[in-house]
Design a protein around this nucleic acid. Sequence first.
RNA 1: GCACAGGUGGCCGAGCGGUUAAUGGCAGCAGACUGUAAAUCUGCCGCUCCUUGCGAGCUACGGAGGUUCGAAUCCUCCCCUGUGCACCA
Length: 414
Amino acid sequence: MSTFLPVDEQLDLLQKGAAEIIRVADLRERLEESRKTGRPLRVKAGFDPTAPDLHLGHTVLMRKLRHFQQLGHTVIFLVGDFTSLIGDPTGRNVTRKPLTREEIDRNAETYKEQVFKILDEKATEVRYNSEWLGRLDYEQTIRLTAHFTVSQMLERDEFHKRFQAEQPISLHEMLYPVMQGYDSVCLECDVELGGTDQRFNLGCGRELQRQYGQKPQIVLMTPILEGTDGVQKMSKSLNNAIGINEPPAEMYGKLMSISDELMWKYFVLLTDKKQSEIDALQTSVKTGSVHPMRLKKNLAESITADFHGAEAALAASQNWARMFQQKAESEDLDEVHIAYADVAGPGEGLAVRLPKLLLALGLAASGAEANRKIAEKAVKLDGETAPGNVVNVDALPARLVVRLGKRAKVAVVE
RNA sequence: GCACAGGUGGCCGAGCGGUUAAUGGCAGCAGACUGUAAAUCUGCCGCUCCUUGCGAGCUACGGAGGUUCGAAUCCUCCCCUGUGCACCA
């Protein structure tokens, strides 16, 4: 009756790109049992809607979820609407400020839209942990926390470091892992996915499940994806993230800017290529038979296509080649209409103050910055380096292609 | 509650009465080099105005006052964090 693939084949897919599984033997056992009984495994991953936009780092986990989904298991997309009232202390050296209910709801909605670019919506169980956490009364909460000791909590690296550094740790932050663990109990999870930075929280789930008489979940940890800087984990606040809602050209460009070294990790974690294929590509680069840029273009196009479709990805690729390899202007620059009065220069004739123009175009954050960039000769007008802060124009709807560094826009002054 | 140590620009961290928009480092931006790579090197890195000048003005060192010709630097009060001690007779 089983429609499941043989366990070895399942394991093969599931282990690709996984940083660590606690424990592989248990996972095998559970897969075998599932195959025998025809019961799909319940696989959970939680996301806290703390920021409205997902980036490629989040998708590493989602791709792994999809693997489970493809194998016929039940995937639970857990929205941590309740836990985000606390904020996961993971990777934080400071206490988070709590979000409002409205922010959380709004973020959660946006999350769902983005998530189903990767997961199959129909086959996904979407749950909110306020469903059970919001129902706990004070007594039940106390009983729940009694399963853990203070020193267990202080063992946790983030807390430990903060404690050592004499940084504040709020009491409520310690409740976060407890609640995440309780999620697993309520959902009766067989497997929970998370980044390696989630090790402690994931382990709490195992611990609690044991206390509640359930089999402890298997924990599958995915590596943390470095951002475009190649060093720190991808994160919006570190400004090294590639958001999955970014326009294709933007996404493609950012992907091209990663280092060759990092490219391999992206191949493993963000494409469906088999490990053996990736190894082969790596060899061909080493022997010089393939240029790394060639592969990076493939990578960038493939990832862009995942979120925007093949057509948009191809266009992004062509546009990129035109802009950066042939140093030409992009075809579809944003046009911004600006009133002459806002940028009018001094004197009688028609003239435009460049700093004001840059500000109006959003190419500079402040007039002072615009001034500096002009002085640094970083600003180009219609392909020519801007000579000074004031430029004369001939007639009134004036069209100027303004470029500052990588970014360019068309200003229409009227 | 008491004592002690702290709170400096996006972050970390110097400065401890005046040539200080405030040393360094990180992050960021731009330029050179390139494969828009990465790495490296160089410049910039509070805001506004214009006569774009080694220009003028404004704002900034937890908050509010004060001392002083002059304060991030001294004083008072307050807020916040950490540590220790107490309180609970």
